[in-house]
Amino acid sequence: MGNLAKTYRIIADILATESNESSLAIEFSNPNFDWDNIVVKGSQQVVLPAICCRLKEKELLSYLPEQLQNYLEYITTINRNRNITLLRQIKSISQILNQNSIEHVFLKGAALLASGCYKDNAERMVGDIDILVKKNQVLEAFDLLKNNGYNKTSGFAYDNKDFRHLDRLISEKELAAIELHSELLENPNRDLIDLDSVFNSKKIVNNITIPNDYYINKHQIIAWQTNNYGYYFRSISFKLFYDSIVLNAFSDKELISDLFETKFGQGYLATAKFYFQAFSSVNCNSFMESYTESHNNYVEKKIFRKVLKPAKYAYLNIKKRLILIANNVSYRKHILNLRFIFKK
């Protein structure tokens, strides 16, 4: 097992909910145990606070070097305080939207924080506040929030009208930016999640409207595999794995059945089963076995990480740019303007 594969395996074992304290204690007792790799990859995977919380719950923090233990507890405390502030912001946004009869549901990290699904809200790191709004109200919601302090925007340098969310809304007085979504997925995968069903599934927790667990899970999984190209690169997200475990995705028979309907869902289940015992009851077919092997090649073999992955990224980027040039007049004008600026 290569260094990266071993690091991933240890991170998975730390995040796992089953009792494995004894085996982890043996690993950590090795004087040559590489904590640096855990910190680097845990940071890249946005799960350092979750790692800290899980080690604390498993009573394994004492095995860490004192300086590292202090560091993890420090950033976890910062994230806990940040999430307290974020929840206040989410409640404020919810109040504005509700008072103006804007039909919406909070998504992803915002929804998870609001749901109270974590034993310690410090476990989840959250960036932007994502909100799905009914298509016929999304522009109204955008203007409404702009008039309530979110008067700075950040987005594309060209018109991208078919994108899944509007420009980010930013307030100098608030911690997080807002992304108002009219869609959950990029084309051609939008029909994989029915928006009306997401709205119909909504529940209210502490006056905050969120989808039910099924749609929180399904959206995050399919979005990672498609919008974030997890399927294309055979890459994984431990943050997503952990969210799925916390929301008991592995025991949701309807969700598992629906995920089996697409290659994206099967790919996710294959890697989730590979890393986490919680998904052990999920059946595995030949496609999933091949998918896991492909993922392992990226993890184990440097030629896949150093050559094939960059080549696939370059191909994807060029393909996206060519499609934009062919179909987006605003993008063509943007490119011409850039050429004019550089010539100057």
Rank of each mutant, 00 (worst) to 15 (best):
S235Y: 01
N207L: 10
R234Q: 05
S237P: 02
Q225K: 08
K202E: 11
N212V: 10
S235R: 09
F233T: 08
Q220G: 12
Y214F: 15
A223F: 03
I245Q: 05
Q225P: 00
I222Q: 06
N200M: 11
I204L: 14
T209C: 14
L247I: 03
I222A: 04
S235N: 11
N200V: 02
F238W: 05
A223G: 04
Y231H: 13
V246F: 01
N200I: 04
Y229M: 12
I236N: 10
G230S: 09
Y229E: 10
L240T: 10
Y214Q: 08
D213F: 08
N207K: 14
K239R: 15
G230Y: 02
Q225G: 01
I221W: 04
P211H: 12
S201I: 12
Y215P: 05
W224Q: 09
K239P: 00
S244H: 00
I216Q: 13
N206I: 05
N200F: 05
T226S: 12
F199R: 11
K239T: 03
K218H: 06
I245T: 04
G230K: 07
A223R: 02
K202H: 11
N228A: 12
R234K: 11
F233G: 02
F233H: 09
N206V: 04
N217I: 08
I222V: 12
F233N: 09
N212C: 14
I204D: 07
R234L: 02
Q220V: 03
N217Y: 02
N217H: 04
N207M: 09
D213Y: 09
N200G: 01
N206C: 08
Y215Q: 05
N212L: 11
N228P: 00
I222D: 05
F199Y: 15
D243G: 03
D243V: 08
Q220M: 15
S237A: 07
L247G: 00
N217D: 14
T226G: 04
W224T: 03
F238D: 04
S201K: 09
S237Q: 07
T209E: 14
K203N: 05
T209S: 15
K218L: 15
D243K: 02
F238M: 08
P211K: 12
L240R: 00
W224P: 00
K202Y: 09
S235D: 13
K202R: 15
L240A: 01
N200W: 01
R234D: 07
S244I: 02
Y232N: 03
N207I: 03
N200T: 05
Y215G: 08
A223S: 15
F238V: 01
S237G: 05
T209Y: 10
I216D: 06
G230E: 09
F199V: 10
K239E: 04
P211V: 12
I236R: 03
Y214V: 07
I210S: 07
S237N: 08
Q225A: 06
N206D: 15
I222G: 06
S244R: 00
N200R: 12
I216V: 13
F233Q: 06
I216C: 10
Y214T: 06
I222N: 03
N227P: 06
Y242N: 12
N207D: 15
I236P: 00
N217K: 00
